[in-house]
């Protein structure tokens, strides 16, 4: 199907005039995709804003139900993974394939750590009935703290928003892990070079966005 121009490198598709055009197009496509992601999350931020403004006392009471230490740890983990992605791109731009592979693997691991921490957070909530909507039923005592005091009006809404927001975000982290597994494999196979690393760049952009969403989720849910 493809009939590449003889003067173009192999990675350039026949319908592009140049590698540059292909790179620009892919990157612009990615930014557009990121905007759709932002708007997807915006719905949850709207729900958050509206319910917070209606029931500030609920928000004040229930943000203490979330463990800021675990949230903070996850923030650092995700920032670290963003850093390694940026490092990876830096290395491949300079033609250092080994540097790219190491950083990609690190990113993948950080993402894994994030999800493990998330798992512990979720299981603590589920254990004590801090669940969304109709399932909301705080109970049990742990470390001398009675969870039943979290049973405040509109608590179900707080936890609905918490679970949906972090759930969609966690799903994105999972997808990100899949993407990094895929490009790590490509990188090990030697597909990327200083001339061609568009998939790395685009996966990186996606990952940074996932990070940014968390940068907002952390203070909004855990701190204030």
């Amino acid at each position: 199907m493809s009939t590449p121009h003889s003067d173009q490198p192999a990675h350039v598709k026949h319908y592009f005039v140049s590698s540059e055009q292909q790179f620009d197009a892919a990157k612009m496509g990615m930014w557009l995709f990121l905007v759709t992601e932002i708007l997807l999350f915006s719905g949850m931020f709207v729900a958050y804003t509206i319910y917070r403004s209606w029931h500030p006392e609920t928000w004040a009471a229930l943000s203490t139900a979330l463990d800021w230490k675990l949230g903070g740890l996850n923030t650092i983990v995700l920032l670290g993974s963003s850093f390694t992605v940026a490092l990876g791109i830096h290395h491949i731009q300079k033609g250092n394939k080994k540097g790219l592979i190491i950083n990609l693997i690190l990113t993948f691991l950080f993402a894994g750590v994030f999800l493990v921490v998330k798992y512990f957070e979720y299981s603590a909530k589920i254990e004590h009935g801090l669940l969304p909507g109709a399932a909301f039923d705080p109970h049990g005592i742990s470390y001398g703290f009675d969870y039943a005091t979290y049973n405040v009006p509109y608590g179900p809404q707080f936890f609905s928003i918490y679970f949906v927001m972090t759930g969609i975000h966690g799903f994105h982290v999972l997808v990100g892990m899949g993407l990094f597994a895929w490009i790590t494999r490509k990188a090990i196979r030697g597909d990327f070079s200083a001339e061609y690393y568009t998939p790395v760049e685009n996966c990186g952009l996606y990952w940074h966005l996932v990070d940014i969403i968390w940068i907002f989720l952390f203070p909004l849910l855990y701190l204030i």
Binding site: S82, G204, H208, I212, I215, F216, F218, L220
Partner: peptide, 14 residues
């Protein structure tokens, strides 16, 4: 603070 952090990521990392 969150906005500052996000801007750093967008401008430099991205």
């Amino acid at each position: 603070i969150a906005l500052t952090k996000a801007s750093l990521v967008v401008l430099i990392f991205m």
